[in-house]
């Protein structure tokens, strides 16, 4: 029983990471039909930003320093996302395949760039001592870092839902996911929303990178790309453009992975997720909470 609780919370922590990566992907795809294959690089960039802060801002004690690290990761993600959209994606509006190809090249170059700067071996993140302590829940000793990741992810999920439902920008984004041509016809500048979703997606992925560095005990340039595959699976299972669907699918995918890895055989978890994807696509191609394809 206690191991079941541990696996569940570990799985939900992983789900939090998938959600942070996948929600941005899903919004970007829903609004702009761009499959952003450079999204894993945003994740890694956030992770390295957090690593750098933890490594060099030594005048702060580890606790507050980690808050600064999360902020720095979000900032790096936001700026990178906005720059990529403004500088590169924008030049290829309307050409979806070309945009996908561009992000592939970009992701490849960005991972190699980080490899050139930081090397490919994982850099260990200095963690506040509290992170590695455990809290007892229902007889299981849960590392606090898992709870932290889960908490931050839930907080950001709520924040994102509020942003989408309560603000004008959020309204435009939701409308744009629904019908971009109509929004444009109403005289609203959709292009600005494009930059906003890229910046937002970058920020979420950046925070994901910082937390991922905690979860995986270090950050390496290819960590984001490795997670990106699962984030794609989450996006497709959840339904493109649906934030609640993404959250649900993130939990489903991560729990499947963790349970199968621990109860059946290590390594089979990832394969069972792939099978899950194939099944969902064949039975319900639009994903769990997605609209039927036009």
């Amino acid at each position: 029983m206690s191991s079941f609780v541990l696996y569940t919370i570990t799985g939900l922590g992983l789900a939090g990471l998938y959600f942070l990566l996948a929600s941005g992907l899903s919004l970007i795809f829903g609004l702009m039909s761009v499959l952003n294959l450079a999204h894993g690089a945003f994740f890694a960039a956030g992770g390295f930003a957090a690593w750098w802060v933890m490594d060099s801002v030594t005048f702060l004690s580890p606790g507050p320093r980690f808050l600064v690290a999360i902020g720095a990761a979000a900032l790096v993600g936001t700026v990178t996302g906005a720059l990529v959209e403004r500088g590169l994606i924008r030049r290829l509006y309307g050409k979806h395949v070309e945009q996908i190809l561009l992000t592939i090249g970009l992701g490849m170059a960005a991972v190699a760039l980080m490899g050139g700067w930081f090397g490919y071996d994982p850099r260990l993140l200095t963690q506040p001592g509290w992170f590695t302590d455990t809290t007892e829940i229902a007889g299981a000793n849960i590392p606090n870092s898992r709870l932290l990741i889960l908490g931050v992810a839930v907080l950001l999920l709520v924040g994102l839902m509020l942003f989408l439902s309560r603000t004008r920008h959020g309204l435009i984004i939701r409308a744009g996911v629904e019908n971009p041509a109509m929004v444009q016809a109403l005289g609203i500048d959709v292009a600005r929303s494009f930059t906003i979703v890229f910046a937002l997606g970058g920020a979420l992925a950046g925070v994901g990178g910082a937390l991922g560095a905690v979860y995986f005990n270090g950050i390496s340039p290819s960590l984001g790309t490795a997670q990106l595959i699962f984030a794609f699976i989450v996006v497709v299972i959840g339904g493109l453009g649906s934030v609640p669907g993404t959250a649900l699918a993130a939990a489903l995918v991560a729990l499947t992975q963790v349970y199968v890895n621990n109860y059946v055989a290590t390594g089979l978890g990832s394969i069972s997720v792939v099978i899950l994807l194939a099944l969902v696509l064949l039975i319900r191609p639009q994903g769990l909470l997605g609209k039927a394809a036009p």
């Binding site: 590169l88 090249g105 970009l106 490849m108 170059a109 760039l113 490899g115 050139g116």
Partner: peptide
């Protein structure tokens, strides 16, 4: 891969 990726972009 940095050079190839940049060239590709």
């Amino acid at each position: 891969l940095f050079v190839l990726g940049t060239l590709f972009v």
